[in-house]
Design a protein around this nucleic acid. Structure first.
Length: 593
RNA sequence: GUCCCGGUAGCUCAGCAGGAUAGAGCAGCCGCCUCCUAAGCGGCAGGUCGCAGGUUCGACUCCUGCCCGGGACGCCA
């Protein structure tokens, strides 16, 4: 990376101040025992220049001078620089730096030269991240809650990638366990129903219509091979009912299914259900622009021996003990609030044991950070997984947990009721069809993930000015339109002429845009560091806003070659930054609307 | 009971390791299209930053307590 790029301006100024402090120290004006951390930040107010530093206030007490006086000293010893026009001392002792207009304009050339790479740090320069998100049980279609995790996870992964992390995206498929068995049995019962058997469908089974679809497939493939009489199915089974009775009933039903169907027959129902659900989820997410590098099967942990290995590892480290016939992990000694069972009394491993095995696998495969993106209801997993990391002899610092709060849909100003059991929940697919992928992706990440999200369906569907997605996309469409108009008006765009005439970009609108597009790399870095895609979403809205203001106040396609080409360079640069940013949050940048 | 997230303008929310007069979008009111898409722009009005203490030169931001809202605490998955 060349020195002197706009994105390095902060570091550059920090270095200048460091030099000034070093000088003051050497000449004996100041006595500083410990090295000081100089921090420069972007100003919020234009009148405060472009960058500000609070070092004088931080150091004032230590060196026994008042802040403004100290600021004067630092300012006087600052090496001169072509990039800085002037330095002012303001307020309680801020050092305000004004970037030179020439320096501000350099950014346009950088954006145009780097194109899609503008704002991207060198690949892998920040290490590796293994991001796991969505990981919804494959027992039904994704709903709108999963959608938020998907949009957040995908956007954050892209942002981390742009910020220089090497990112692997994974979906953990819970294809092992009771819920999957219930799903398999649900399919079988529907299959029997389709075959003409009279069945009493348990209250606890999966009732969605998609179960019929899977059952139909099973029937097409296996005909009547899996058919048994209703009598055989329910004979001697404990009755269905509410609460506990329902659980007992369905467990007995699972056991009966296995008996009657045998391993192959049961597997037929099971795998049909699993394959259908996983491919349905994959298709759904794919259409939503959410991709994964790997779909990690929970069952594979057992077949690969990873499960056994993880338990052995915990044992070897001395964290296991046996009580009441079960094997426990001493999580409470490692920061969790209670110990956790890894092997049940009945000899089967727990869900938590799988989590530990998957964690070990992740830590071994990825030398960097394991990023967990959970729904907020899973926050209890944080201490136990950290305990697991410690138990495996790894640092919990290698785990990063991001909890995504719930999304609540609003229509007509009223909450849309959702209930999984009754089947009246809104699926992600329905949401996408209703508001479109772009609006859904944007709305999901426009708020901090730590914040509950009120998802206004009417607003997301609105094609009026209040919809922030269209607002941003419209800016991009306008930019495309400007270039389309070039030919129509008999002009030609010449980037070189524009670059030679960049000093023509002198209006307040142009200056503001220069500052904003120059800020983009820092926005990416900040969004990545804070795991906060909404920072980027807000930035894009700001950028669009500044562009719209400029558009309404200036004419781009003027007769003056210099002015026209200089402006077109800036227009092109804004378009490029919009495209780069929108791509990271999975929103299209349309040529026209 | 313990733990997690939140409480900023009428509504929905920004405000990033504390910083210079608290911002945006909606909604409300008033303006702007013989001109590159008005899905746009400009202006006005609107807030004791939940409450009370504390730390600091400086607190919406950090600490403690309390109040309110949402959620989590299985040998379930």
């Amino acid at each position: 990376m060349k020195r002197g790029l706009p994105q390095n301006m902060r570091a550059y100024i920090e270095e200048l101040i460091g030099q000034s402090l070093g000088y003051l120290k050497r000449e004996g004006t100041l006595t500083l025992d410990e090295p000081v951390k100089v921090q420069v930040e972007r100003t919020r107010d234009r009148s405060h220049g472009d960058y500000a530093c609070n070092i004088a206030m931080v150091l004032a007490r230590k060196v026994g001078r008042n802040p403004r006086q100290l600021a004067e000293l630092i300012s006087a010893r600052l090496p001169s620089s072509k990039r800085i026009d002037k330095v002012e001392i303001a307020g309680p002792g801020f050092l305000n730096f004004f970037a030179s207009p020439h320096y501000l304009r350099v950014v346009v050339r950088e954006v145009l030269a780097q194109g899609r790479d503008y704002g991207r740090a060198p690949a892998g320069s920040r290490g590796e991240v293994l991001a796991e998100y969505v990981s919804a049980n494959p027992t039904g279609p994704l709903h709108v809650g999963h959608g938020r995790g998907a949009a957040y996870g995908a956007s954050l992964s892209s942002i981390l990638d742009a910020a220089g992390y090497r990112v692997t995206r994974e979906y953990y498929v819970n294809d092992h366990g009771r819920q999957m068995d219930i799903l398999a049995v649900s399919v079988w019962l529907r299959y029997l129903e389709l075959a003409g058997e009279r069945v009493d469908f348990p209250g606890n089974a999966y009732r969605g219509d998609y179960i019929y679809d899977i059952a139909r497939e099973v029937r097409e493939r296996h005909g009547d091979k899996l058919r048994h009489t209703q009598q055989a199915v329910v004979d001697g089974l404990p009755a269905d009912g509410d609460g506990q009775a329902a659980e007992i009933h369905i467990d007995a039903l699972i056991a009966r299914s296995r008996e009657l169907l045998g391993p192959d027959g049961y597997e037929a129902c099971f795998s049909a259900a699993l394959d259908t659900m996983v491919s349905d989820i994959r298709e759904d997410l794919g259409a939503f622009g959410v991709q994964f590098d790997r779909w990690f099967s929970e069952r594979s942990l057992e077949t690969s021996g990873a499960l056994e290995r993880a338990i052995e590892r915990l044992d070897r480290e001395g964290w296991l003990y046996v009580k009441d016939g079960a094997t426990w992990f001493k999580a409470s000694e490692l920061g969790d609030d209670k110990d956790r069972v890894v092997i049940r009394e009945n000899g089967r491993t727990t869900y938590f044991a799988s989590d530990v095995a998957y964690l070990l696998d992740k830590l071994e495969r990825c030398p960097g950070t394991s990023l967990y993106i959970f729904g907020a209801d899973h926050h209890g997993y944080v201490p136990r997984l950290k305990a697991a990391a410690r138990g495996l002899g790894e640092s919990p610092d290698r785990l990063d947990f991001q909890l995504v709060q719930f999304a609540i849909l609003f229509r007509g100003g009223r909450k849309v009721q959702m209930s999984t059991r009754s089947g009246s929940f809104v699926t992600l697919r329905e949401l996408r069809e209703e508001v479109g992928n772009d609006a859904a992706r944007y709305f999901y990440v426009m708020r901090s993930h730590e914040q509950h999200l009120d998802f206004d369906l009417d607003l997301a569907k609105s094609s009026a000015n209040e919809n922030p997605v269209y607002y941003i996309q419209y800016a991009h469409a306008r930019i495309s339109s400007v270039f389309r108009q070039l030919d129509a008006r008999g002009f030609r765009y010449n980037q070189a002429i524009g670059e030679a005439a960049m000093d023509r970009l002198d209006s307040e609108y142009e200056q503001a845009l220069l500052r904003t597009i120059g800020r983009y790399p820092e926005v990416i870095e900040g969004a990545a560091d804070r795991r906060a895609p909404h920072v980027l979403a807000h930035y894009l809205h700001d950028l669009a806003s500044e562009f719209h203001s400029w558009y309404n106040n200036s004419q781009f396609l003027v007769d003056d070659d210099d002015a026209r080409n200089a402006r077109l360079n800036l227009v092109a640069a804004v378009g490029q930054v919009l495209r780069n940013g929108l791509e990271l949050i999975g929103v299209a940048a349309p040529e026209e609307m």
